[in-house]
């Protein structure tokens, strides 16, 4: 698992690689805690290289979202595989998260 952070059009874009599961969740949380401590206002998380998410991974993403909301930050998830997107649908988390098909669209419309 790895999280690569870059700036694009004054936005923070994070690329996550591998599985978001019980083993990788602490490291993912740590990577996002750094951004949250700086109160980064908008984060796009590109999940195109994420092959698997378990309930711990979903919980970690919920926690990141909650922590961002505390200071009014916003997060968008993009490039989910159909299987991972279905997990968000089954758990109704799709209602909580802003989920977009493509990173470029998420960046272009993130006002």
């Amino acid at each position: 698992m790895a999280v690569r952070v870059e700036n694009k059009n004054n936005l923070t874009v994070c690329h996550v690689d591998g599985e978001i599961n019980i083993n990788s969740s602490p490291d993912i949380k740590k990577a996002f805690d750094k951004l949250i401590s700086k109160k980064v206002p908008k984060i796009v998380i590109n999940l195109s290289r994420v092959t698997y998410v378990d309930s711990s991974g979903l919980a970690t993403l919920v926690e990141i979202l909650k922590n961002m909301r505390v200071y009014g930050g916003r997060m968008r998830l993009t490039n989910l595989s159909s299987k991972i997107k279905s997990l968000f649908e089954i758990t109704k988390l799709e209602k909580l998260f802003e989920i977009m098909a493509e990173e470029a669209d998420a960046i272009a419309t993130f006002n």
Binding site: S55, L58, A59, V62, E63, T91, K92, L93, K95, L96
Partner: peptide, 17 residues
């Protein structure tokens, strides 16, 4: 875990899934 009172919780989705 899909109930509005629980959806923001950090756990409780395993058995549901």
């Amino acid at each position: 875990p899909t109930d509005t009172n629980y959806i923001m919780r950090n756990s409780g989705r395993g058995v549901y899934l």
